[in-house]
């Protein structure tokens, strides 16, 4: 399957840039683009930022995922503490990053 030219992938590896992630996603949606976001390693702490919920409301539920292993490694409970806005099956593996690379013609790291 060829990557969709109207799809933007955001690979989040830093715990510092929620404002940029939200700003870029809002701008992309305004421009009629679809956005996929994957949070990995220490960036999963951003799921505790109130802006995370806002981000999840901008994208289809299947387009936002976090690395379950990272979430557990950082001490969170992936069963009883699923971040608001996320559904439990979006606690994913690094394969979701692979899916972003496959599906999104445009891509940015945060």
């Amino acid at each position: 399957m060829a990557a969709d030219p109207n799809k933007l992938g955001i690979f989040v590896t830093s715990p510092q840039h929620m404002r940029h992630i939200l700003g870029i996603t809002k701008a992309a949606v305004r421009a009629g683009k679809e956005v996929m976001v994957f949070f990995t390693y220490k960036s999963i702490h951003l799921t505790k930022n109130p802006l995370f919920r806002e981000l999840t409301e901008l994208c289809p539920v299947e387009n936002i995922a976090i690395c379950a292993d990272s979430y557990i490694c950082e001490g969170y409970d992936n069963v009883n503490d699923v971040p608001p806005g996320l559904i439990d099956k979006q606690m994913r593996t690094q394969a979701f990053h692979g899916a972003i690379l496959d599906e999104c013609a445009k891509y940015i790291v945060m």
Binding site: T13, T40, Q94
Partner: peptide, 26 residues
């Protein structure tokens, strides 16, 4: 071909992330 640049000792998890892509045939 994916290059993952690690500039900070805390973020060598980038190696695990690279492996995740390798098993996805990248």
């Amino acid at each position: 071909k994916v290059y993952i640049l690690i500039a900070n000792r805390v973020y060598n998890d980038g190696i695990r992330s690279g492996l995740g892509l390798a098993v996805e045939n990248h």
